[in-house]
Write a protein that binds this DNA or RNA. Sequence first.
DNA 1: TTATATGCAAACTTTTTGCACGCCC
DNA 2: GGGCGTGCAAAAAGTTTGCATATAA
Lengths: 147, 147
Amino acid sequence: MNTTTIIEQIRAKGERITLPRRLVIDALGYTHEHLAISDIQRHIQAQSPGHPVSDTTIYRVLQWLKDLGLVSQTDMGQIGIVYALMSHPHHHHLICLTCGTTITIEDALFIPLRDQLRRDYNFEARVDHMAIYGQCAGCSQDQSHPA
Amino acid sequence: MNTTTIIEQIRAKGERITLPRRLVIDALGYTHEHLAISDIQRHIQAQSPGHPVSDTTIYRVLQWLKDLGLVSQTDMGQIGIVYALMSHPHHHHLICLTCGTTITIEDALFIPLRDQLRRDYNFEARVDHMAIYGQCAGCSQDQSHPA
DNA sequence: TTATATGCAAACTTTTTGCACGCCC
DNA sequence: GGGCGTGCAAAAAGTTTGCATATAA
């Protein structure tokens, strides 16, 4: 789903579209990566130098998009808080607590879990983006051979 | 595992035990709930009114316990950041994005996922505490019958 | 005794709020 | 035209840091 489609979708709900809102959505739509506030700022700055958007507005637009269920928010620990469009193909991150490496994993791994939560708790998990902490292959090996 | 055992464990690693450290560990050991900084403050205040512990120190002690792998940290969104002893029987939370209800779920549900991450990525997930967002039974029902 | 932990105060970062102005519909 | 969104500046919240003092081992 592209940015234009998303904007049509929002308009259809009777929501108002403004330039700052469009710029934030474009920034999120530009990449499938998860973006921090500063990444969004930087993208807008690069894309439309004549139309800076204040932090205040970015926070408000992101809150609005979260309320509309169009954006996910995740705390990536050291890395900070990141945002992504829900319409992107989902992916998730494994974060190594020792070396900080992040590994991207597919959403398919979470399907059984989602099914089970639906079955057992009638809970519709919106596992938009999970950040799972632990030890990567290299670092868990190092720990088993302590100095 | 009780607080005393944890403290022995820490001592055995050659770490120094002080009163503020003991008080923070006691606070975390007192309950199986996940505690915010303010909860820890409150518990220490109630338990040992004569020995307040500064915010600074609580942050430092929690960082130290995380480094030792004894404490988990989770961003619960609206609720804020919470901490818990890893030695507690693990449990996790489903958080309803609509009404804010939190549902406690057992760790057993995550065993298949952990196994798969180990198998596919050699990644040792420390799924100490997951916060999963979505819609609870009541709220997802409401949405299917819009006003 | 000596290295390490603590408390205080201040700095810093991130996020939120009030209010006057401006823009979308 | 009127309601809603935006930017600015300031405030609030959360967290970190430097340094002198206190304490565990």
